[in-house]
Design a protein around this nucleic acid. Structure first.
Lengths: 103, 103
DNA sequence: AACTAACATCGTAATATTGCGATAAGTATG
DNA sequence: CATACTTATCGCAATATTACGATGTTAGTT
């Protein structure tokens, strides 16, 4: 099939899986790390930083935007991306509670 | 293409992405949650618990085993799965350090 | 308005994932 | 050893993901 049967899982299970999935790519991890360090959010520099084509970076940014973990603000003719602290903390909390079950 | 260019990323970025990917499916989240609560690890019950076919569950278990986060011990004619505390804590630590960059 | 720079989106090829029926493999039990 | 039971693997169909060239779009510049 290839299609995840999300109907049979709880909303929370689906939500956690979706968030994890959005982060589950080395390019997106790299983007997150970069945005974290370069306090002043970046944009097209990511194309140079990572060795991926511009449309590819744009697509990865879109996926991170979809879960709300990053946001882009217009800045001249370029767009400045940065981590949305609020969402970032929520995601962290969600993961923590998953990991808290055991240990 | 469809193939991730893992050569261009650091080992750590690839590792984190791989771990996240292994957890990034509602069925696997459900399995982890179940294994966490049922201290006495379970196995084929997962087929009934979640509404997925046995081969599908088996495949998900395999993916979780691949990253070492769960392990299976023979128990009679069935196999008893449980979370590998050691690996579980390592993964938690890895995620924590990712989330620690910001916030 | 035409031009340019910076992103986004479209379309598509290559590959990966999800799910399951069929079947194999392993292990008690009679 | 034959049987039953439990899990793993194979093979395939359906769908999703990754990457990028080509092309749109938007916003400053001249």
């Amino acid at each position: 099939m290839g299609i995840t049967k999300s109907e049979i899982f709880t909303d929370r299970q689906n939500k956690i899986a979706t968030m994890l999935k959005a982060l589950a790519h080395p390019a997106r991890i790299a983007i997150i790390q970069h945005l974290s360090r370069a306090e002043h959010c970046i944009c097209g520099d990511l194309v140079e930083e990572l060795g991926l084509a511009q449309p590819t970076i744009s697509q990865h940014l879109k996926e991170l935007k979809n879960i709300g973990i990053i946001k882009g603000c217009a800045d001249g003719k370029s767009i400045s991306y940065c981590i949305d602290e609020k969402v970032w903390k929520q995601v962290k909390k969600e993961f923590d509670s998953l990991f808290a079950v055991k240990s």
